[in-house]
Design a protein around this nucleic acid. Structure first.
Length: 566
RNA sequence: GUCCCCGUAGCUCAGUGGACAGAGCAGCCGCCUUCUAAGCGGCCGGUCGCAGGUUCGAAUCCUGCCGGGGACGCCA
């Protein structure tokens, strides 16, 4: 596939640059003073006004300058607007700003030229793959660890949010120019594996299940699926039965988890076991590094990390008095192992119940000589699953839980992805399965997909009529329906920029909804396929195609399909 | 008791320093001989939990309180 790597700069940054230059010119011309050297630097901010009559973009620069300049914001805005109106061609060749006006209490409102919009639309058509990818001044190698559920049972719906949010974060980082490794970490040697082994073995042997064992239906399935030779070797004289069965069963479960995640559209680059971190001496290295810095001490037979020296409220045990590592002990080894792979940043996507362990992890990172800010933890609030007003337990041991696969059957991947992509990760959510099922048919995701399918249908109709899209929309955005749609289409790069900065996708779903609305209005007001007006028709087709690409790329960023028909 | 998150329309949620606070769903009224009605137009709906404070400007930042959830282990 030949794809251009051309990046189209967001119009918002073009305008920001133009305002910065206008400000500098005003200073050079003496119509505005230079910023006092002791004043705090003022950043030029450009935002979309909430009311269309205020123009396409606006800046609050004059209001921020009012205090250091000791002049009225409106007067400063007047100078900036005047200087902006005199702006020469933008960097992309051709005038950018059609009109700049000062407005109370001190905004400068900017209206874009049709030419600026046309250049952006043409660039989409020339390089559809690149549209919506943004450049970063400092691309990073980022490791994102998420899900990381131990393979003692299938993923349940409680794991869904972390899986989607982690994957969405990865997609956003990639769209922002970063290189991402998706990583899954799990325990392959602890007591949980033995517990699973004894549960499965009891089923196979027909003896009562152990107390505190796993009880879900999957345990019976595993017992039935276990090959005879595994069972034979586990049942041999002196054989470590629960270990042999547990090891076999957990790998079986892990493979099932991988398959479930694949159905969600989530794939991992790397599966790391706690055992390998231990075996490959990463924990020893971590302990060595901490020891060198004098951050460890022994007490009551256990090995402690002096986390309080970094502001934690208590010190933390690395190795228990029985010689076994704590979870935290493995974690610091894993931290060293991750950094050894050359990452600039490690992101952990954890359930909010782990918030108490964040401080010790970052403290240990600092103690071992890493940058505190290079270790980030994204805490995902819980989803409370409810059916008919009753909360559903998520315990694998009780056996009463809904698997991820069952959830997908009920509401579908695209609707589930949209659900989590459109909400922040910090607030707790009540997820009523029956309500979700009922609402899935009227989920906004279908509204957006429908707009995409509608355009695809128009393109097919056009082809039948012998019409093809123009390669440029130049001169074609003068009509009101065209201009309104184009103004929405060109926003994608800035939406992605904001998503990258926030690590969140709510802005993308909101934008996709707005763009779908804009297209449906265009569809109502402007006939695209019209053999009597072939040139206008060809330009409208080009604009429709640019809209389709934008919808597809926005949905693609969220891992949601963009169907050609519905 | 200490710490973290949340509280915005009937419901589910966006908006986290800017201009008259938004969307979807629910409710009510209208629109299919014309490129997909999974659509379009209109109406209804808000003390942004409460009280102070900072600011030219606060849903957004700070403090306190109220309400909901979570965490405080040599568990994972």
């Amino acid at each position: 596939m030949t794809t251009s790597t051309t990046h189209i700069p967001p119009i918002r940054s073009q305008v920001r640059d133009a305002i910065t230059r206008a400000w500098e010119r005003a200073i050079a011309a003496g119509s505005l003073p230079a910023l006092p050297s002791d004043a705090e630097p003022v950043e030029v901010e450009v935002a979309r006004p909430s009311h269309p009559e205020h123009g396409d973009l606006s800046t609050n620069l004059a209001m921020k300058l009012a205090r250091p300049y000791r002049r009225s914001p409106l007067a400063i805005a007047g100078v900036l607007a005047e200087e902006l109106a005199l702006s020469g061609p933008g960097e992309e060749g051709g005038p950018l700003i059609a009109e700049a006006v000062a407005a109370a209490p001190g905004f400068v409102n900017v209206r874009l030229t049709d030419g600026a919009l046309e250049r952006s639309i043409d660039a989409i058509l020339a390089a559809p793959q690149a549209w919506g990818r943004v450049t970063t001044q400092r691309p990073e190698r980022v490791d994102v660890e998420f899900v990381s559920a131990n393979p003692t049972g299938p993923l349940h719906i409680g794991n869904a949010r972390g899986a989607f949010v982690g994957d969405l974060l990865c997609r956003v980082l990639e769209a922002g120019g970063h290189t991402v490794t998706r990583e899954y970490y799990f325990n392959d040697f602890g007591g949980q594996i033995r517990q699973l082994g004894s549960s499965v073995a009891a089923h196979r042997a027909g003896t009562p299940p152990p107390e505190d064992g796993y009880r879900g239906a999957y345990v019976a399935d595993l017992a039935a699926a276990m090959p005879e030779e595994v069972w034979q070797s586990a049942s041999g004289l002196g054989a470590d039965r629960e270990w042999i069965v547990g090891t076999w069963a957990s790998e079986e479960v892990r493979a099932g988890i991988e398959a479930s995640l694949a159905r969600l559209g989530v794939r991992f680059d790397r599966w790391t076991t706690e055992g390998s971190i231990h075996r490959d001496a990463w924990v020893d290295r971590a302990i060595g590094r901490l020891n060198e810095g004098g951050h460890l001490y022994e007490a009551d037979g256990a090995l402690w990390f002096r986390s309080t020296a970094f502001g934690d409220d208590k010190d933390r045990v690395v190795r228990r008095s029985n010689g076994e590592l704590t979870y935290f002990g493995s974690d610091i080894g894993y931290l060293v192992e991750k950094f050894s792979r050359g990452f600039d940043r490690l992101i952990y996507v954890w359930g909010a119940d782990h918030h108490g362990t964040v401080a010790r992890l970052r403290n240990a990172a600092v103690a071992m000589g890493f940058d505190r800010d290079a270790v980030e933890v994204m805490l995902i609030a819980w989803v409370r699953f409810v059916r008919d007003g009753r909360e559903i337990s998520m315990s694998k041991r009780s056996g009463e839980f809904i698997t991820l696969d069952e959830l997908l059957e009920e509401i579908g991947v695209d609707a589930a992805r949209w659900f989590f992509a459109s909400r922040g990760h910090t607030s707790g959510i009540d997820f009523d399965i029956e309500l979700a099922k009922k609402q899935s048919s009227e989920n906004p995701v279908y509204y957006v997909q429908y707009a995409h399918a509608r355009i695809a249908s128009i393109v097919r109709k056009a082809r039948e009529a012998g019409l093809s899209a123009a390669s440029s929309v130049a001169g074609g955005l003068a009509g009101a329906p065209e201009a309104a749609l184009a103004r929405e289409v060109v926003r994608l790069p800035e939406v992605v920029e904001d998503a990258v900065a926030a690590g969140e996708t709510q802005g993308v779903t909101a934008f996709a909804t707005d763009l779908a609305t804009a297209f449906h209005a265009f569809y109502r007001d402007a006939r695209v396929v019209d053999s009597d007006e072939p040139e206008r028709s060809r330009r409208r087709l080009a604009l429709a195609e640019a809209t389709r690409i934008t919808l597809a790329n926005a949905l693609g960023l969220l891992g949601i399909s963009a169907p050609d028909s519905m």
